[in-house]
Design a protein around this nucleic acid. Structure first.
Length: 301
DNA sequence: GCCCAGGAAATAT
DNA sequence: ATATTTCATGGG
């Protein structure tokens, strides 16, 4: 086993693992000591994930687990995971500067103040895409369950420190699933969306990573070609996986925030409202602001 | 029982 | 183009 430590006070803006990994951005990490999510913060809890190796590389998948204890981020892995952890948790983001540069806005100030240390994640693209296809009309805790179920049923198992973990299934692995199987696993009407999108990626018809090369709104349009992906899910993938910090997913919570706090930003269509609220929340880092407001309103904290 | 959840696709106007 | 309807499912 390889291990490492990163002092939290070396990170601009700190790190709150609970708020980063259980705020509904990422479904690629699991808290190790629970079956069900939705509980209260768990100090010192381990979180684990499996990062998939490129199919054409001669290396295997890697298990990574992290926790914060006594002001230090500790990681344990099958590989040297320092740079991977920094990338997945965006530890090199200058969070202090992002907060400082945010527009002076009562709701946003409140949200940033209430959730210090929450960082955005950078999930791998395919798992992120499938996660948010599953997210339609679902609670955060159930999305975690659905993603874990997919990993357990279709992902590659990997041993680490006496336990068995499962990677999120590759497109080819998930494309072997049938709609009926996924319905039996509780995915409901999202089942055919997941199968068809997995087939599209497995067949080389399209790949979410392609969106990285495009301008923001073109990237959003590109992602909506996947079955089960509309503007909102596309924005989630752009923000939580593909490096588009300006993306502002217009979900139920941010829509109610627009109604209550930014009524002039309601421009009717998704695209026009998106431009207006993106501009209001600070442009280039509007997605950071959106994630804080989302979590602030959803948790009532 | 009733309502809702990080919506999208199909259909109607 | 925009407005309505349908679609599953567990938890409160």
């Amino acid at each position: 086993m390889e291990t490492g430590t990163i002092p939290v006070d070396e990170l601009s803006g700190g790190l709150d693992l609970y708020r980063t990994l259980e705020s509904g951005q990422s479904y690629c990490w699991r808290r190790s000591d629970v079956e069900m999510y939705g509980g209260s913060p768990a100090p010192n809890a381990w979180y684990h994930t499996v990062v998939s190796a490129p199919e054409d590389a001669a290396v295997s998948d890697a298990v990574i687990r992290v926790r914060v204890r006594n002001g230090v981020l500790e990681w344990e892995s099958t590989v040297d995971a320092d740079s991977i952890v920094r990338r997945l948790l965006r530890l090199d983001d200058d969070l202090e500067a992002i907060v400082a540069a945010a527009p002076d806005d009562p709701l946003l100030d409140e949200a940033y103040a209430a959730h210090r240390g929450m960082r955005l994640v950078e999930d791998p693209a395919f798992p992120c895409l499938i996660s948010f296809i599953c997210s339609a009309q679902m609670r955060v805790s159930r999305i975690h369950t659905m993603v874990s179920t997919l990993a357990h049923e279709y992902g590659t198992p990997i041993e680490f420190d006496g336990d068995t973990y499962h990677a999120f299934p590759t497109p080819a692995q998930l494309a072997t699933a049938t709609e009926a199987e996924l319905r039996d696993l509780g995915l409901g009407y999202r089942a055919p969306y997941v199968v068809r999108t997995a087939e599209m990626v497995a067949d080389g018809e399209a790949h979410p990573e392609e969106a990285r090369t495009l301008e923001y709104e073109d990237a959003r349009d590109y992602l909506t070609q996947f079955v089960g992906v509309g503007d909102k899910v596309a924005d989630c993938v752009l923000l939580f996986s593909l490096g588009f910090d300006e993306a502002v997913p217009l979900d139920t919570w941010i829509k109610s925030a627009i109604e209550d706090y930014y009524p002039d930003c309601d421009c009717g269509s998704y695209a026009a409202t998106s431009r207006a609220i993106r501009d209001r929340l600070g442009g280039d880092y509007a997605g950071y602001a959106q994630t804080y407001i989302f979590h602030h309103l959803r948790t009532g904290e």
